[in-house]
Design a protein around this nucleic acid. Structure first.
Lengths: 231, 231
DNA sequence: ACCGGTTGGAAACAATTGTTTGAATTCTCT
DNA sequence: AGAGAATTCAAACAATTGTTTCCAACCGGT
């Protein structure tokens, strides 16, 4: 069996280990050991661990970004001036997300990495992803805006992040949740299955009625005081 | 100003740092330095870093569990045999969650810690939380079941986790999201504000129509093949 | 065939990690 | 006040981390 080249071998191993344990908990020796590659290879090919992490993300996000732009192009060509329905937009995004990792990698890994990027390392990763692949998301949001004219902009912003939370959280903890589901309900759910279950929920979430009153509670926010560091 | 005792000082500092950077990325020296406490104090008072992490969670979850049990008791006494409406259940949970950290701590920190517990360290933390505080959640689910008899059990299981994802994801990334919201929409959202926005979305999510077809796609799940470790 | 640039490998690097030690200090109770 | 327990402290521990170094092996072009 012709082994893939070293860089690919490192990326393949790294993404799995990162997804399983997180970035800080995965050492380079752990990666290079499992990948049967010399330790120094990581720093030689990628420069640093940080760059390796970004490279792992780039391998997912680059084809995704490309395909998603293309998919949106198709949609816009098909619908012309007409507004693209919300369901179509969401379904297109889901399909693109499902397509990309299916080629070589695991959707679970992809989602778990996204979840880690959000939850962990508040710093460089989020900035990197935002700067590098933010445009396609912006484009998507613009279309969602046309599809949901009844929503105030701020409301739509929050709701999109609500459903983003649903998606990332679910798929990123997929294994554990699936185990419970299988054990308690004797039901093995596939990824497509989960998407099918998620669709009506997401649509309903976006189309939910607006909250009752406006933000007029005087801006009290004492819930966020932290234990003061008496320096 | 009378300083709180060492254990409290450590817990106060640790929970903030953990929430900001994650567990592995926060060193004991980092904590003890900021808390103005000797390094060995952590191991003296808590035994190990792992135990410290659990103690941080216990300080949130213990009062939450107690209050939530009490709140459910009240609800059951009030409603007797009648089913408690879903909205009331969700609102009760939200209120309890908001109450607990408001005493001394930050809701943001609480949620971020919950998010980390799910996303990070697949091992000991989830088990610990499940074993220690799983009963109150089980009790809650039983009431939700009565409130949503139209949902198949498995469907309700997944939907509860969908909305759990929304809640944890949103509050755990609260700062960043709030910054964007404030910058793009000139709108400062308080925590209560966010809860108000989230409510109709969560309710709509739980009450969304059932997905169309059953799980009859032949169980293909090749999306989850991982890059084989050719050992 | 030969050479220059690229790639691979074992060892060592300095820094940081969680934890332990044993003496000094503070607190508690009679 | 003083014996004894509880706590704090500085220092060192062994282990692991990401990174670098130096040398051998390889490759394609003239």
């Amino acid at each position: 069996m012709a082994q893939p080249d070293t860089m690919t071998r490192i990326l393949d191993t790294a993404e799995v280990l990162f997804a399983e344990r997180g970035f800080a908990e995965t050492s380079l020796r752990n990666i290079t050991g499992k990948a049967r590659v010399n330790l120094a290879a990581v720093n030689y090919h990628f420069g640093s661990k940080k760059s390796l992490i970004q490279a792992v993300f780039a391998r997912y996000l680059e084809p995704f970004s490309k395909r998603f732009h293309a998919a949106i192009d198709e949609l816009e060509a098909e619908y012309g001036d007409k507004v693209i329905p919300l369901e179509v937009l969401l379904e297109t995004m889901a399909r693109t997300v499902l397509e990309v990792p299916a080629e070589k990698h695991s959707l679970k890994v992809f989602m778990r990495l996204l979840g880690l990027a959000y939850s962990q390392a508040q710093g460089h990763l989020r900035r990197y992803i935002q700067e590098e692949y933010g445009t396609v998301f912006t484009r998507f949001v613009a279309l969602v805006r046309k599809a949901t004219p009844e929503l105030p902009d701020a409301e739509r912003f929050w709701r999109l992040h609500f459903v983003l939370g649903t998606v990332i959280f679910t798929f990123s903890g997929l294994d554990a949740l699936r185990d419970i589901s299988e054990q308690d309900y004797g039901e093995h759910v596939s990824v497509r299955d989960l998407v099918r279950r998620m669709s009506p929920v997401v649509v309903a979430a976006m189309k939910a009625p607006l909250p009752e009153a406006g933000p007029c509670d005087g801006g009290e926010d004492q819930l966020n005081v932290r234990a003061g560091a008496t320096g």
